[in-house]
Design a protein around this nucleic acid. Structure first.
Lengths: 283, 283
DNA sequence: TGGGACTCATGCAATTATGCATGGAGGACG
DNA sequence: CGTCCTCCATGCATAATTGCATGAGTCCCA
């Protein structure tokens, strides 16, 4: 049995089709089919049932899926641990943060970092889903909640105040009412975020006109006069066409947390970036 | 990183040289060198130091050895679990037992089994070291001690009486003395086995003339008139040239235990053999 | 009912990895 | 000090694997 074929097995189990699994592993569909066949021959069992809905695990396949997953965990840990021992200040750093945070707060810091350490390549990903630090989809993550995953080192970076904004020429809504005003909020997929609840409380009669999962997009819509948005102050104050309005009370603030995997503690380039981020952004 | 290369890494770490690792994996020395190089390139670290005494792990290599070993465990469990679900009565069964036990007690039982299940290939290994059930070096093991490994199902099979033997024309030693008599005992590597201690107690003035790790060899030497040996009764009584002698008390008897891996419980061919072994040998 | 977007299987060519053979380097031993 | 044995590195021919291209089947939708 080839251990590498277990990777193919996992990919097919997760993706459901040979083609998707191939894309995930950077190989081709015929190869996936043949590697799977080789694995099944080696262990003497059909691991998948070929159905019209793709490849679904047989009982035998499902029974051994856990083993394959643990193998993957160990293989990732193997690589992570070696990566964490790198001492030289070059290589790749992957960072993930929310769109506006990356755009308005991180870019200047990272630009400074890039000047200081020109041999380090920085990848800054603004993905709405949480990238996994364990799988090394990212080396460093900024989030609005503490990290509850095991083996993740996390610390509070800063306190982020929010404010309500409109376009400069937008008629200011009346606090406690908001009749006629339009609201710009987070995507409904995010559930009820505290600032959305706050907005609907202080402007109960206003109507939600636009949603987006990106604060930066909300800010731009707000500049276009589409309504009232709750934005982090660094974002709202940075855009010239926006006016901060007073609705009697401030929207709830949020904390920003920073996290990285324990195995990466001693990664020199990560520590260098971390030091700079804390020096420039921590309050 | 190729997961299969981790197997190469493990083999080199254990064997110390490329050639030995290659023999273990059934490949060739150049391949091992190249696969290791590929792995080191993939993870960006030298995992071994090339010394005059062979390949020794670097700090980085030693740090990730545990991960590779856990991967191996899971890969073995993966295969074991699938093997345990086999239903048809063919395939391979590996059995390990001591030399004389295999020769005198197991061969008739296994011959009967082979007649009943002609499509099952039986491998009977008489290795003095304990083969590992977990690594599937053997599917079924007979030992003189209970099994203390985790996940091993073990049960007592039978009570094995021992007796003292000499060649038929050998002058019978006097119990409690033994002056002039020669002793045949277990290999010194086995430490003090109870029958060796017994022999030296009832014949304190006798001298150890020959040692072997194999009871069958001891028995043959005894037949040649080389001295007094303590042998299991089924072995001693089976050899025509041997005479059982009375030294006032019987040597200590031993138990025989049988063990197999929990994952193999439902392996039909193993169960079939187990049933037959118990029916023919258990007391 | 036909076209498009999927799926997987298979023949074929090019790439890649493998094993064999050889050479050089380092001990062990007479 | 030569001989022998073992080790690893490397060139080269062969074998194995891969990717591409294609075909057949399925599903969905106009």
């Amino acid at each position: 049995m080839e251990w590498s074929d277990l990777r193919v097995f996992l990919a097919i189990a997760r993706e459901g089709t040979l083609g998707a699994a191939a894309r995930k592993l950077g190989q081709t569909q015929p190869t996936m089919g043949r590697r799977l066949q080789a694995l099944e021959n080696a262990v003497g069992h059909k691991l998948f049932q070929r159905t019209s809905e793709g490849f679904v695990l047989t009982d035998e396949g499902a029974a051994v899926l856990n083993h394959a997953e643990r193998i993957e965990d160990e293989a990732l840990a193997f690589q992570r641990q070696l990566a964490g021992q790198e001492r030289q200040l070059d290589g790749l750093l992957r960072i993930t943060a929310s769109d506006w945070f990356a755009e308005h707060l991180l870019t200047p810091v990272i630009a400074e970092f890039a000047r200081a350490y020109p041999r380090v390549t920085v990848e800054l990903l603004t993905d709405t889903r949480f990238l996994s630090l364990s799988r090394r989809e990212a080396d460093l993550a900024f989030r609005i909640r503490p990290f509850d995953e095991p083996d993740i080192v996390s610390r509070k970076l800063l306190h982020m105040p929010y404010g309500a904004y409109t376009a400069a020429d937008y008629p200011p809504p009346r606090a406690g009412d908001g009749e006629g005003a339009l609201l710009i909020t987070m995507d409904s997929a995010f559930g009820n975020m505290p600032d959305v609840a706050w907005l609907q409380r202080v402007l109960p009669n206003a109507r939600v006109a636009f949603r987006s999962n990106a604060r930066a997009v909300q800010a731009r819509m707000c500049m276009q006069g589409a309504g009232v948005a709750v934005l982090p102050l660094p974002l709202g104050d940075a855009l010239a066409g926006l006016r901060r309005i007073d609705l009697g009370e401030d929207p709830p603030a949020r904390e920003t947390w920073i996290g990285y995997h324990r195995d990466m503690r001693r990664l020199a380039r990560l520590r260098a970036l971390l030091d700079l981020v804390v020096a420039r952004l921590a309050d």
